[in-house]
Design a protein around this nucleic acid. Structure first.
Lengths: 152, 152
DNA sequence: TCTCCTATGTCAGCGTGTTGACATGTCCGA
DNA sequence: TCGGACATGTCAACACGCTGACATAGGAGA
């Protein structure tokens, strides 16, 4: 099975050898682990992602947050609504210039993010622990190549 | 960083260097590409996954299909309902022995799967094309290690 | 035999994520 | 100046995917 020529219509004999399959399984496992880790912090994964991005880039608009987390404006809009109801973010009702309204973390939002980060980073560390250290960089690079190859 | 103690709270300086982030992005890109590829075949990604597994293992029950595709019984139940309404799968109303009802592809289901496979395999090939051939096996292996490390 | 444990199927509710559509606001160029 | 291209925010409809809960069917063990 070390053939290097992509001649057949089937990338591999077994579906479980497909990159897509492995990718889906890994993502599913990570999602599940994050879900349980974040539950005790009363956050969902998209909510946490949003807080993390906001901490790094305060004042991003809904559409910008959506692009940063790879979802649509519509999905992010819903997430933001939840975060605002929980008092973790603020968003001015009117702006002087454009149409985009900048989102910012509240003090409660920053506290919540910090407490959740420990749990999330623990999951990340546990996941990466199974990888030989020297191959981690290659893995990150390959995942990046997959993305670039797809949106070409 | 081959230290075996989880000392640092931050696995990496930048969030975009996290495995979780890259994994999410790659999965999102794949999902999008598959969505558009499958749309002209009137199939969703979970529906296609279900058909693919059924072709390999005819007669699997709802719960078994769910485990094979990493979703819950409830989610798979919904997918199966859609497939049955489209006439792509069949499922006996009563069984003589247990409670599990075996699902099978109809002739239409097999045809639909075959026509969709070309599109899906093209996406897989396009995605993998960006990876140095010698590193593909390592990538598959590392993705596997991530999963095993998480459900330990 | 009777009971408990486990697996399965299904209902309900919620959050997420998508496409499609539409209104609104800016800016650039004719 | 004005009109179109573009980005943004939002509504609606639909499909997924999760948890929680419940009923049912089989098998193992007292």
């Amino acid at each position: 099975m070390a053939s290097s020529q992509p001649v057949s219509p089937h990338p591999a004999a077994d579906v479980t050898e497909h990159v897509g399959y492995r990718l889906k399984r890994a993502h599913s496992a990570l999602r599940g682990a994050l879900d349980t880790a974040l539950r005790e912090h009363d956050l969902t994964v998209p909510q946490y992602s949003c807080l993390e991005v906001l901490a790094l880039h305060p004042g991003l608009s809904n559409a910008e947050l959506a692009r940063a987390t790879f979802v649509t404006r519509q999905s992010m809009n819903l997430v933001l609504r939840g975060l605002q109801e929980a008092g973790l973010t603020t968003r001015p009702d009117v702006v002087d210039h454009g149409r985009a309204r900048p989102v910012r973390l509240t003090a409660a939002g920053e506290r919540r993010l910090r407490s959740a980060q420990d749990a999330v980073y623990a999951v990340e560390a546990r996941m990466v622990a199974g990888i030989p250290g020297t191959r981690l960089a290659a893995l990150l690079d390959d995942l990046d190549r997959l993305v670039r190859a797809l949106d070409t």
